[in-house]
């Protein structure tokens, strides 16, 4: 599934998504606006971002798809 077909409203905390830059994010909160979700990096091309372990807003169009 690519991001064009992904309705963000279907994402739940705990779901993992892959971003277009290859990062993997675990969803922590879905504000339900269909445009952003909050999540933590599990993997990122820039390792520092994973270590920060802070919640980040993730934009719909940056999401490649859901990781199964």
């Amino acid at each position: 599934m690519d991001s064009e077909n992904l309705n963000l409203l279907s994402l739940q905390p705990g779901d993992k998504v892959v971003l277009t830059d290859g990062a993997v994010v675990e969803i922590t909160d879905n504000p339900g606006d269909g445009v952003w979700v909050f999540g933590r990096y599990l993997a990122h091309p820039d390792a520092a971002k994973v270590e920060a372990a802070e919640e980040q807003p993730i934009f719909a169009q940056d999401i490649q798809g859901v990781q199964r």
Partner: peptide
């Protein structure tokens, strides 16, 4: 009730 206010136009949040 919402955690963030997201603009419907270009998506600033």
């Amino acid at each position: 009730n919402t955690r963030a206010f997201t603009c419907p136009y270009h998506g600033w949040s």
